[in-house]
Nucleic acid binder design. Structure first.
Lengths: 156, 156
DNA sequence: CTCGATACCATTGACGCCCATGTTTACCCA
DNA sequence: TGGGTAAACATGGGCGTCAATGGTATCGAG
């Protein structure tokens, strides 16, 4: 399974177009929908991004009523309502809608930030500030990452 | 499963290329992604290095929401955002990005330091200093390493 | 007919691939 | 056991391809 890794800053032209990083496109290449899904973050001034399969998994999760609280169901409903399908053109660019750019404060450039299964889209300077903040806190608290054991069997 | 062992110092050419030690490549040879993943250490002036499977394990771990605190989630998110996929060329070299070399202070050479499951990339002189420090501390404290029992069954 | 959206085309600059070379290590044979 | 040979690895440079980016044309809707 492909992951969204690293951070890429790409220019936004006057038509609102921006290139989706090639590596992100590669991870999404096997999906039914040739593009990305984007919705406004609840907690930060950025967009959340993912592929269609992630949306389907979210949908599946909400089917298990007992697995999800009422709050979580509200949240996922909000996500579905706000999600936009942004197809990319033959050159791999998407067009950022007005309100998306407004929500994230994006003007001239957009930062695609890998989050593993998903990614985020930020105004580059805003992300730098947030990142520095988290990094400083991480340095102070020194949390440790509990890792699962490698998949049993072979190391393939 | 292969381990990253020993320390290798290789030259960095003017294009920023450096050979990944052959033994490290062998350790990573069975991975889906032919290259290394590198991200900036939070605590030291070096890069942390690993293979794609390590990232996937991290991703799997973050799926267990209850197992993760907010701080840990921040940290793993930071790793994903900072992780760079550095594929090697047919000769086994990777290109070190500008900011990577800046963070680690690397100019003419890079030291690949085995850490077992992972490895680190240092500016050679900087690592020598840190190593001497750790060695001196180890001599004084005489820490002991608790060993797990060997896995029953196969030793694979 | 006008405006907006999307496909098409062109440019450039970085990155990956190819070939060539030196140097060390490992191996084979005398 | 020693020398010679061959393979593998580390290193350097040149070139082609692809991704990112900016502009133009075309199609459709209002």
């Amino acid at each position: 399974m492909g992951l969204f890794l690293s951070t890429f800053v790409n220019r936004v032209d006057k038509k609102g177009r921006v290139s989706v990083p090639a590596t992100f496109r590669a991870t999404l290449s096997q999906q039914t929908f040739q593009g990305i899904i984007a919705y406004r973050s609840f907690t930060a001034a950025c967009m959340e991004g993912c592929g269609m399969d992630f949306m389907e998994r979210l949908s599946d999760s909400t089917q298990n009523f007992d697995a999800f609280s009422a709050e979580q169901e509200d949240l996922s409903a909000l996500i579905f309502a706000d999600a936009r399908q942004l197809a990319w053109d033959p050159e791999g660019r998407i067009v950022l809608p007005e309100d998306v750019m407004a929500h994230a404060g994006i003007t001239e450039a957009a930062a695609f930030v890998g989050k593993g299964q998903t990614f985020q889209i930020w105004e580059p300077e805003a992300y730098k500030a947030v990142e520095a903040e988290i990094r400083a806190r991480a340095l102070k608290l020194r949390p440790t990452l509990p890792l699962k054991k490698p998949a049993s069997g072979d190391g393939k």
